[in-house]
Simulated assay, not measured.
Amino acid sequence: MNTMMTYIDQQYEILKDITSKYNERLSSFASVIREKKAKKWLVLATGSSFNSTLSAKMYIERIAGVKIEIQEPFNFYEYEKISSDTDLILAVSQRGTSYSTIEAIKKCAKEAEVPQIVITSIMDSPIVKYAHEVIDMGCGIETVGYSTKGVSATILTLMLMGVVAGKELGKLSDEDVENELDKIKQLIELIPKTIEKSIEFYNQNKKELDQAQRFTPIGYGPNVGTVKEAETKFTETIRVPTQGFEMEAYMHGPIFELQEDYFVIFTEVVPSTVFERSNKLNHYLSKHCRNVYSISNLPQSENKKHLALDTDLDEYLSPLMLVVPYQVLSYYISLAKGIDLSIPVYSDFGEVMKSKVE
């Protein structure tokens, strides 16, 4: 039987496959960008799809010169209007069954004459009938209800869409495209080692982590998406209160709930302009909380609370790697707590609230 860890382990091969086939899978998207010169994108996504989009957003904007607005679909179709300068709409839904995302894309079809593209992993899912174009994110079906390979596949697909858009909009030369692809491929090669180091980190800190009753992941820049996905994954699987914060936002109120026995996890990248401030906050919190951990690309240290991935890393691409340790931790801690992730919790919820469609 497949487990959440099965899909975590599959990510290396899946991400390599997505990268090797990106030209073919994104050919229709390239045509849309070439024809429409779309520079203001509206992305409709919720849950892990939202987090994945947030993780890729800054990379896409930087290399393609576009502006991305991310909207929660339910709030969008109930209350919002499409901005007059929106020239591309993307709906992201891994399984293609999100009721709110479907309703949001249906609203867009009625109200805007701009290209509407669905990104999904199931090409005959309910949402595809409402799209002008459909992009296969290339991860296949994930039978465990808590996305891991789907998150990484979504982040990578969106980043590759950024590369394609950058080329079609004249922001990237052929040489630039190859450089970006090389960086992505090199990062993917590090995924197996990242999984291995994450398991080692868990085993070194197992006694403490398994007892945690409150997690606060903190990140900055592109990795705000990473810590929001950590929030989603931990609450889904470990089922203890977890809230992911942008570093500066954490200092403006949330810090005051800090307790000595809480668990804080920093997500840090070097080089980055914000690292010194993050590191300063890390040291400050460590004086008031005994469970302050960090995940970074820094070299190995003697501190067992630091998961040091010891590699050069483009900050804007880093969520593709740094989301993996949170996936590993969510699996192992939930396993230690005796939570069987194959058994649905609140199994009648979807039927009662109609959050998914068949």
Results as ranks from 00 to 15, higher is better:
232 T>N: 10
50 F>Q: 08
327 Q>L: 03
131 A>L: 06
126 P>E: 00
39 K>G: 15
184 I>T: 00
101 T>L: 12
354 K>G: 05
356 K>A: 12
332 Y>N: 07
170 G>E: 12
113 E>T: 07
103 E>G: 07
63 I>N: 05
39 K>T: 15
318 S>F: 00
322 L>C: 04
154 T>H: 11
106 K>E: 07
75 N>S: 15
329 L>T: 04
90 L>H: 06
263 F>W: 09
332 Y>A: 06
212 A>N: 06
7 Y>E: 05
251 M>C: 05
272 S>N: 11
163 V>S: 05
215 F>R: 04
27 S>F: 06
183 K>G: 13
214 R>Q: 15
189 E>S: 11
174 D>T: 10
194 T>N: 03
134 V>W: 00
214 R>S: 15
148 T>Q: 03
248 E>T: 12
10 Q>G: 13
232 T>G: 06
257 E>I: 14
80 E>N: 15
3 T>A: 10
33 I>E: 05
43 V>R: 02
58 M>I: 12
199 I>R: 06
153 A>Q: 10
226 T>N: 02
67 K>Q: 14
57 K>A: 01
262 Y>L: 12
302 E>W: 06
136 D>E: 04
63 I>F: 05
213 Q>R: 01
166 G>W: 10
182 D>P: 10
127 I>Y: 01
353 M>W: 09
164 V>N: 08
244 G>R: 10
223 N>Y: 07
306 H>D: 01
305 K>E: 02
340 D>I: 13
247 M>H: 02
97 T>L: 10
142 E>R: 06
32 V>D: 00
110 K>P: 01
187 L>F: 00
210 D>A: 10
150 G>S: 06
338 G>K: 00
303 N>E: 05
83 S>D: 15
55 S>N: 00
163 V>R: 09
156 L>W: 04
162 G>Y: 03
105 I>Q: 03
138 G>D: 01
296 S>A: 08
313 L>Y: 01
339 I>H: 12
243 Q>F: 14
198 S>M: 04
18 I>N: 05
39 K>P: 13
81 K>C: 13
243 Q>L: 13
62 R>Q: 14
18 I>K: 12
346 Y>I: 12
216 T>M: 15
35 E>I: 11
327 Q>E: 02
326 Y>V: 11
170 G>H: 11
86 T>R: 03
106 K>M: 09
148 T>F: 08
303 N>H: 07
56 A>I: 08
14 I>R: 13
210 D>Y: 12
15 L>T: 14
180 E>H: 08
120 T>G: 10
147 S>M: 14
135 I>A: 01
137 M>K: 07
328 V>R: 04
189 E>Q: 11
45 A>V: 09
258 L>F: 02
262 Y>D: 15
123 M>E: 01
264 V>H: 03
23 N>Q: 13
35 E>C: 08
85 D>M: 06
140 G>I: 09
268 E>V: 13
160 L>K: 03
331 Y>P: 01
64 A>W: 02
260 E>M: 09
314 D>L: 10
231 E>L: 05
330 S>K: 06
83 S>P: 14
206 K>G: 02
280 K>V: 09
11 Q>L: 13
